[in-house]
Design a protein around this nucleic acid. Structure first.
Lengths: 295, 295
DNA sequence: ATAATCAATAACTATGAATTATCAACTAGA
DNA sequence: TCTAGTTGATAATTCATAGTTATTGATTAT
């Protein structure tokens, strides 16, 4: 005698409220009329209110039933929507991917990913945050980020990495520097200059790589300044406070009195990788990764 | 294996989503852990989506589950509200009463009813419509009105009537008419004047009653004008186009150069009755009627 | 190792939804 | 005023399945 309301009740109720006829409603529901009768009666008992008036030969709604009908229509409709949404999210057709990236990834990889997402999965939303390598790794481990774009060769256990973009390095020189594309041969030519590099803790891999480039040429660079922003580095070069070595694509999007000399011959590459938590179950992330494989 | 989603599923789901722990959730729900496990699994099957990730020693929500949790919270909350509302409407504590009335009922009975409702059942709303006797009867029969205030002695089958207010009749005379409260004795004194009365089809009972008043005095009135609005009748009297006989309380609320002489001695009374459909199940109407019994 | 704790699985029980069969109340034709 | 044919409500029964107990396998902690 202490029953609970169930969706079944609502569906049955709505059928009767629409047909105002038990037998016809029962037929529509593919159940027997007595079953329907008892369920409606039970429902009235649960709610503590008469919902239908069964008068001589005709069924009609009470005001409470009238009210409930509207509500049930809303609830069942809302439910149907919810079911669809849940399914879509489960399939990764819908949802959110939280992306972190190094500033240098914004030149190329991240915009392409966003464009691809917009085209193939327009219902997948993204949040973007520019973060250092370390900050991205921490955020991913703490489940505050789904996907990161970093320059690291090794990542903590539980995370997966995969290179997505390889870039040559370019020398960054003041606009009026004697060296140019034509007379540049070897990085030894600038061995005595001051160097401006990205900070180690912003991207140790980059730092190590640049040092190894110099090492391969037989000198140790004199690092006078370190920074975390390309903008700052270029500004320092422009003001003749030193020269820099940066990933080639970084040059796009800045308007500075500096010149870039791409060093195609040196073997080191600036590798941008994506990182994610191995057990991340965000289905929208899967769609993202599929897309990145193709870029 | 073709199950239906039920509210039970939602309640179970929410418990697990909150506890993120099957055994604890099951305890909270007073069911066994295996039962809970199978129900959640079934739910995931119905929705076609994983809702929880059961990893080494810890349960967590998938994005789809995260979304569903919010929706379920909303739905269950909305449902609880609805249940309460339905109960209240069933008890007549809430709802709407559609009232029709003759203009003359607005002087006294209807305002008192509204005041009483506001005090005792502030959640019962009303809609008001000034309508003729006939229009009210039709509207009540067609279920467009719950309650009417009419001047009729007989009503069609299926409707109930009950007098709610008895009023004496008053003579309405131009302001400068020789007759007044002091020298008035008998309606015979105005037997030769022109009479202005409410139209028969607006209220046949009133019409008959006025005629019977005259008849009792031994004359047949000369009816020069008929109208449906007190305002019009008073205006005509003011302009000396005739005199009128109206229910006494009608005089309130008008500012006219007319004088009223209450005829307490004549036996006829202007009876205002309430009418309603015998089988009207609007519980808010019951509250209305209870109130009117006490007025 | 051992014990403890997690969720999942298997076999079983028992609740109660749904069925069939029937009834009582009413309507509409002969 | 008889049927015959509606209507929804009851009663007895069947049967699906939610929920139970008992157990397992996997993992963690001591």
């Amino acid at each position: 005698m202490n029953y609970q309301l169930e969706l079944r009740h609502f569906i049955y109720f709505l059928a009767v409220a629409e047909e105002l006829h038990y037998r016809k409603a029962a037929e529509k529901l593919f159940i027997s009329q007595p079953g329907l009768s008892t369920q409606i009666k039970q429902m009235e008992e649960i709610l503590g209110t008469q919902l239908f008036v069964r008068d001589k030969k005709k069924v009609s709604l009470t005001p409470a039933g009238e009210y409930l009908k509207k509500e049930v229509e809303f609830i069942l409709n809302h439910l149907e929507q919810t079911k669809k949404q849940v399914k879509l999210i489960g399939e990764g057709q819908l949802g959110e991917v939280r992306i972190g990236f190094l500033g240098s990834a914004m030149q190329n990889v991240v915009p392409n990913l966003l464009l691809g997402l917009k085209e193939k999965f327009p219902t997948v939303h993204t949040t973007l945050e520019e973060l250092s390598n370390r900050a991205q790794i921490n955020a991913i481990l703490a489940d505050r980020l789904d996907l990161g774009f970093v320059r690291l060769s090794r990542v903590p256990k539980g995370l997966d990495v995969r290179p997505v973009f390889e870039d040559t390095f370019s020398l960054v020189l003041p606009g009026d520097h004697p060296l140019d594309e034509a007379n540049f041969k070897n990085i030894n030519q600038v061995a005595d200059e001051d160097f401006i590099l990205f900070s180690q803790d912003y991207s140790p891999m980059y730092y190590d790589t640049v040092l190894s480039i110099c090492e391969d040429s037989g000198f140790v660079p004199n690092v006078s300044h370190k920074s975390v922003h390309a903008q700052t580095i270029f500004k320092l070069v422009e003001n003749k406070l030193g020269i820099a070595i940066v990933p080639t694509t970084l040059q796009h999007g800045f308007q500075m009195k500096v010149k870039f000399i791409e060093m195609k011959k040196i073997k080191q590459r600036a590798v941008l990788s994506m990182v994610w938590k191995t057990d991340n179950r965000n289905p929208a992330l899967q769609k993202c990764m599929d897309l990145l494989m193709k870029l």
